[in-house]
Simulated scan of single mutants.
Amino acid sequence: MTETRLYIVRHGKTMFNTLGRAQGWCDSPLTTLGREGIRELGQGFAVDGLTFDEAFSSDSGRTLETLAIVLKELGQESLPHTADRRIREWCFGSLEGLYDEELFHGVLPRTSVVGLDKKLTNLTYQEIAEALVEADTAGWAEPWEVLRDRIWQGFVSIAERLETRGGGNGLVVCHGMTIATLLWLIDPWWEKMMIDNGSVTVLSYEKGHFSIEQVADLSYRYKGREALANERK
């Protein structure tokens, strides 16, 4: 059996990312620079001779757009693809679209969970989730247990699917806080890890156990950028 490995990509930079707005279950398209960054990523995979046996993404438009660009650069447009809502970003409920500064330094510190005496950098993911639930007037934000379980079950399901089919490389496109939460669930040392747009986190999987190989790696983009620059000469 071939080793099972997940190459988990954070989607390309979007309009909301550029504007500094919270973007969970709401969506915005990739910018021109965002699309170019994902072209670099796809080219970087190609430079390393990396191909994939199956592709997965959340059902958000920005991940679907990212995936399509990567597969085009690899010449793997016909690769089987599954869109899984379980690996969506966190849901911010009625707080979707707020400026990050307003959300994290204005709204959340006024909740009983956080309070003005706590620094956000010291909060656990569970505390942030509980604060979002308290602040969300629509009642759409997910309780920590629901959020935690859907992310974990989504990735385990993807890994088990590949493993059952004999292993191989799975390309997974999803979201920054989703990836960071998964890493924390595997090893709490990784809490609050910054996941850049177009970065790659690599996990291996065997019989129910994830191993972390790379986190938020941008080297594929750098290789792809160089390849594209040489192509333009």
Rank of each mutant, 00 (worst) to 15 (best):
R5P: 02
Y7P: 07
I8V: 08
R10A: 09
H11A: 04
K13D: 00
M15I: 12
R21C: 12
R21E: 14
W25E: 11
D27E: 14
D27N: 06
L30G: 11
T32Y: 10
L41P: 04
Q43M: 15
F45V: 01
G49P: 04
G49N: 05
F52M: 01
S57Y: 01
S58L: 08
S58R: 05
S60R: 06
R62K: 15
R62H: 10
L64Y: 02
L64K: 02
E65I: 08
L67P: 06
I69N: 02
K72F: 11
G75Q: 00
Q76K: 02
E77I: 02
P80N: 03
T82W: 00
A83V: 05
D84L: 10
D84W: 11
D84I: 04
R85W: 13
R86D: 12
R88H: 14
R88S: 12
E89S: 00
W90L: 02
C91Q: 05
F92A: 07
G93Q: 12
G93I: 11
L95C: 15
G97N: 03
D100I: 13
E101P: 06
E102M: 09
F104D: 00
F104A: 09
G106L: 09
V107P: 14
R110F: 08
V114P: 02
L116K: 02
D117K: 15
D117R: 13
N122V: 03
N122W: 09
L123G: 11
V133F: 14
D136H: 08
T137S: 15
E142C: 05
P143R: 11
E145H: 12
V146S: 10
D149T: 12
W152Q: 10
A159F: 08
E160S: 06
E160G: 07
E163F: 15
E163R: 08
R165F: 14
G168A: 14
G170H: 01
C174F: 07
G176S: 10
M177G: 06
W189R: 07
K192I: 00
K192M: 02
N197D: 04
N197M: 05
Y205W: 12
H209R: 11
H209W: 00
I212H: 05
E213R: 01
S219N: 05
Y220W: 05
R221V: 15
G224L: 12
A229N: 14
